[in-house]
Design a protein around this nucleic acid. Structure first.
Lengths: 143, 143
DNA sequence: CTGCTAAATGATAATCGTTTTCATTTGGAC
DNA sequence: GTCCAAATGAAAACGATTATCATTTAGCAG
């Protein structure tokens, strides 16, 4: 279950952030899309409805939402980061290298592996990233 | 076992690339370091021995080595990519968020998970990324 | 509803990492 | 040694992101 727009706005409020039309627009766009969106793409989409929004505001909103854990920032090989609405439960991503579509998946437990690594390496494990990159069925057809 | 410098140079030859002093220097630097190095950091290190090398050449060499699979390019959250000598057998990375040190680990098989995902999602899986981020023992002490 | 204030915005410029361009140099085959 | 495609370096171009700062506004108090 993806995060609802409502959940995001109430979280913003709870942390004392204002709920501006610009932030609304960015949130709407991210929640409405199933795909990985770059900042530029988000700006482009948002601009259709709100032509007077600045790219800077998009960046600032993304930084804020990311910091609050409401959206996920991913890097899949190429240069620039992409964002997708965050899933409240722990999960991983399956990303289409063709169109950027993101599918969440759960059910693979890496805690015991993390514990083993911590024991063997002396690291204090903070986080992990598990991503599968592939080609979605739609992109496989249009080759 | 990390890739040796010798292995890298013969691979270059085999693909018809020239073995220039500049490439040697970049290769030496990457092989000698256990840490994740950014292009800027590699340039900095290489410049000590070869003050007349250009940053552009570092970028070009990294691109080449990465394309030949001799070094790994990683993105761990932050903006710019980092590189480390590649391990010939399939492996994953444990990265220190303090100093950038990289520890390879193997033995965790994700093939069956990949197959399950492919079956359920219709994706054709191409690749996967598994990284653990943590704090190495040295960095834990200097806090 | 009205006014107030700190927070948020937008325009512009600055910054940073990376890539392109192009004239010059050079590794390595002959 | 000669030659030429490949490689290099300097400079400029480029794209993404961030900083600056004057203006606007959300949300609260009265």
């Amino acid at each position: 279950m993806k995060l609802t727009e409502r959940k995001i706005t109430t979280t913003l409020r709870r942390h004392g952030y204002k709920l501006t039309p610009q932030r609304q627009a960015v949130i709407d766009t991210i929640v409405a899309s199933q795909d990985l969106l770059t900042p530029a793409r988000i700006y482009e989409k948002v601009s259709c409805e709100h032509p007077d929004i600045g790219l800077v505001t998009v960046y600032r909103t993304l930084e804020l939402l990311s910091r609050l854990g409401l959206i996920c920032e991913l890097h899949h090989g190429n240069n620039c980061p992409s964002y997708t609405a965050s899933n409240p439960e722990h999960h991983h991503h399956l990303i289409c290298s063709g169109c950027g579509k993101v599918v969440d998946f759960t059910g693979h437990d890496l805690v015991s592996l993390g514990n083993r690594l911590a024991r063997e390496s002396g690291f204090k494990i903070q986080n992990h990233v598990l991503e599968f990159i592939g080609v979605c069925s739609a992109c496989q057809e249009t080759k």
